[in-house]
Amino acid sequence: MAGEYDVVVQAVRVPGSGYVELVLESPELAQAVPGQFVHVLTPGTLRRPISFSRISAATATAAILFQVVGAGTAWLAGVAAGQTVNVLGPLGHGFPVPEPGRAWCVVGGGVGIPPLFAAVQRWGGQVAASAILGARTAAGLVMVEDFAERGTALTLTTDDGSRGEAGTVLGPFKRWLRAHPDGQVYACGPTPMLAGIAAATRGHRAFLALEQRMGCGIGACLACVVPVHGPSGPRYARVCSEGPVFAAERLAW
């Protein structure tokens, strides 16, 4: 159940320079749905939202993987195994269960990759997944080995061509979509990438995990909104509580 928890950091991993993954001991967080997130207490005036990168009910752990981009993530990167962090979570609505019998593709850009691994970890056994993962440079392609270990069909892209295809994920994604007209898509990444996916997937089963600057993280302050289609025109929906996962066709971009 969602709540405020002090959780022990069981292990700290460094998947690449500037990236850190914390494994958190928590039976409550281990009940999370892929796509949900925690709101982590840091020394700033606001908490920091970070998605689950792995969820394991069996070991009563859940992990978060983040890039160090500012003061909050820099502080979090300094937390050592055995120390405690305070989180609110699991928060928001995660991805739905993928429909069996339909090809499934996860498309991740940069730090949008971790929640998609959590989805493949949870459901990849029932529905075979293809993954198209992209980043600016090779260093940003996190969790590639984790996908590979699960036998996920992988396509990699980097903006600078340092690993995989040069360019963004949209090229290989559009090829995948043409080959799988009935396919379902889960995506997370920078807004231009998600907007491109939303435009390409009209009429498809497509779910996008969004980011927005947050205050409370639990639906109370109306900070974290995105425009969605409502019964009487566009309205602002809260990413933290109505998302972060939205059906692509609901978004009014």
């Binding site: 600057r213 900070a223 909104v225």
Partner: peptide, 23 residues
């Protein structure tokens, strides 16, 4: 009231700037 376009919050030293727009 629809409120203001995002982003609606920004962290400042010891504070928080918000423009929710009374949604």
């Amino acid at each position: 009231w629809p409120g203001n376009p995002p982003p609606r919050v920004w962290e400042t030293p010891g504070g928080l700037l918000n423009s929710i727009g009374l949604q």
